[in-house]
């Protein structure tokens, strides 16, 4: 990753953490201070989707180019996607406890997120069950493309057809409503960019580490 991107990432995350906790926010019933979760919970999903799309992109590329380096990228991006997905579930669950009064509700958006996690756990299980590298790369690429396409329907289309407690659905306020509040917007946009860059940075380091490990293994054998 380029140095200036890393600098932007660190600067924006400082803005997010300091600004996110200190910036004045609108006083709304029920939400109160928990509205600050917007700076942490929502960007997790944005970053997760960004890295998972990257993983999908490399899966496609692997199928056409058949280069094992591309498979390493697809794998590591998916791994980082899972970490951010878990963080998104945790921050969302904590927020839900204090606003809805429950850790988990039967809601189409929440279930979509959980199902996505299950799909990627299954993806790694599939990877672990195959020993041959070429075969593993090809089969898991096929699975990830197939699963991603079906998950898209689940996450982006089904929630729009049903009512949901989640902000952004069924008359519940989402961040679009606070866009008028320029203070929050000033922190929210850097937060999205900062967390996404962090996700790509982590993935970048992991990919390099993976390649070095592969080389060490090759030289030893």
């Amino acid at each position: 990753m380029k140095l200036w991107l890393k600098i932007i990432c660190i600067a924006f995350l400082f803005i997010t953490i300091i600004g996110g906790l200190l910036v004045p926010v609108p006083r709304l019933a029920i939400l109160h201070e928990t509205i600050r979760n917007l700076f942490f919970h929502v960007p997790m999903w944005f970053s997760m989707i960004a890295v998972l799309v990257a993983s999908l992109f490399y899966s496609f590329k692997f199928l056409s180019k058949n280069d094992l380096d591309l498979d390493v990228k697809a794998e590591e991006f998916a791994r980082v996607g899972i970490v951010f997905g878990i963080l998104g579930l945790l921050t969302g669950s904590l927020w839900a406890k204090y606003t809805w009064g429950a850790w988990w509700t039967n809601d189409v958006k929440l279930n979509g997120a959980a199902a996505t996690m299950l799909v990627y756990f299954a993806y790694f299980l599939l990877r672990n069950s195959i020993d041959d590298e070429q075969k593993r790369a090809r089969i898991s690429a096929v699975y990830s493309i197939f699963a991603f396409a079906l998950m898209t329907v689940f996450i982006f289309i089904l929630p729009r057809l049903t009512d949901s407690l989640h902000p952004g659905n069924g008359g519940n306020p989402a961040f679009a409503k606070y866009d008028l509040d320029s203070n929050m917007r000033l922190v929210f946009y850097p937060a999205v960019i900062g967390w996404s860059l962090l996700a790509f940075w982590i993935a970048d380091i992991r990919i390099r580490l993976h390649k070095i490990n592969n080389q060490i293994e090759e030289s030893q054998s």
């Binding site: 279930n111 199902a115 996505t116 299950l118 799909v119 299954a122 299980l125 599939l126 069950s129 699975y143 197939f146 699963a147 079906l150 998950m151 329907v153 689940f154 089904l158």
Partner: peptide, 13 residues
């Protein structure tokens, strides 16, 4: 393995 791989992606359907 079939169950693990297919159940999550069957959920939307």
């Amino acid at each position: 393995l079939i169950a693990i791989l297919s159940f999550p992606i069957l959920i939307p359907l």
